[in-house]
């Protein structure tokens, strides 16, 4: 029983990271109805930026804030420069551009920082708490996730800008008529996604270590989380993330072992898409043909 509880708790901790990645995916999906295949590499690149700042002697939280801000700017820039020209292109073209972005970010990171694995510090103390069930880092990760979710909720619910972004996503034509600059709202969505992704990268790097390919598996679980929760629902993404994290840990401990983690994610993704494509909390979209 104790082992079981331990598995569940540490599942919730890894699940929190999946939840943040899923949140970032949801940001872009809500704004543009696209799934960003480059999200993981964007987060990885942001984490390298944080590493550079820490290496230059910045205190952790300053580097953290700096990375989030810089990632936001980079996210906006990527939307403006790379994504905007294919905004109205067929899905295939957009997916190819995303894959191009993934490959470029991955190789540039490898080029600048080499492929050797680097360690990345955690801001939380290195000890276990709550009777040894969770480490301080795991608890910190959960707290940050909840914080990010709360901030996003407040932003979208109570600020004019958040309202404008929601409007632009739901009905671009009417939004433009009332004076919202829809194109910039999409860019802001990308900026937010990049910033959230940066948080995920910095939180996961102490666990998986920093290298250009560190996000591949995490992105896959982020996809699974977003799909399970409903890809257009931020709160659903968090619930999905936590559920997927627990599921991953339990199946790793009791069913298939840890070597098939990615296959578990594959089965989850295909399963959700087949059984309930809108996810647990997503809106069912009906379209006329």
């Amino acid at each position: 029983m104790e082992a079981f509880l331990h598995q569940v708790l540490s599942g919730l901790a890894t699940g929190s990271i999946y939840a943040i990645v899923a949140l970032a995916l949801v940001m872009i999906y809500q704004a543009t109805h696209l799934v960003n295949f480059a999200q993981g590499e964007m987060a990885m690149f942001s984490t390298y930026l944080a590493w550079t700042m820490l290496d230059a002697g910045f205190p952790y939280w300053l580097a953290f804030a700096g990375t989030v801000a810089l990632s936001f700017v980079l996210g906006v820039a990527i939307e403006r420069i790379v994504i905007r020209p294919v905004e109205k292109a067929p899905v295939l073209a957009v997916v190819i551009v995303f894959i191009g972005l993934l490959v470029i970010l991955n190789s540039v990171a490898g080029w600048i920082y080499t492929y050797t694995i680097k360690s990345f510090p955690s801001p939380f103390p290195d000890r276990t708490i709550l009777g040894g069930y969770v480490s301080a880092h795991e608890l910190g990760v959960m707290a940050v996730t909840m914080g990010v979710l709360a901030l996003l909720f407040l932003f979208f619910r109570f600020t004019p800008l958040g309202l404008a972004m929601r409007a632009a996503a739901q009905n671009p034509v009417s939004s433009r008529l009332v004076g919202i600059r829809v194109g910039w709202m999409l860019a802001l969505g990308w900026g937010l996604a990049a910033a959230i992704g940066a948080v995920a990268g910095m939180l996961v790097a102490p666990i998986v270590f920093l290298d250009p390919n560190m996000m591949a598996g995490i992105l896959l679980y982020g996809f699974a989380a977003a799909l399970l929760g409903g890809i257009d629902n931020p709160a659903g993404a968090v619930v999905g993330g936590l559920a997927v994290g627990v599921l991953e840990n339990l199946s790793g401990a009791y069913l298939v072992g840890t070597e098939l983690k990615l296959t578990v994610a594959l089965v989850l993704i295909v399963g959700v898409l087949l059984v309930r494509p809108s996810g647990l909390f997503g809106r069912v979209v009906v379209s006329r043909v």
């Binding site: 899905v91 598996g217 996809f223 098939l260 990615l262 295909v270």
Partner: peptide
């Protein structure tokens, strides 16, 4: 199963397949 998946979602499912392949081969 891919019949039910359109565009983006098929890309997602096959992306997952690509990532899972090396692990499956090492099983």
């Amino acid at each position: 199963p891919a019949l039910r998946l359109e565009g983006l979602y098929l890309a997602l499912a096959t992306f997952a397949l690509a990532l899972a392949t090396p692990q499956l081969l090492k099983w």
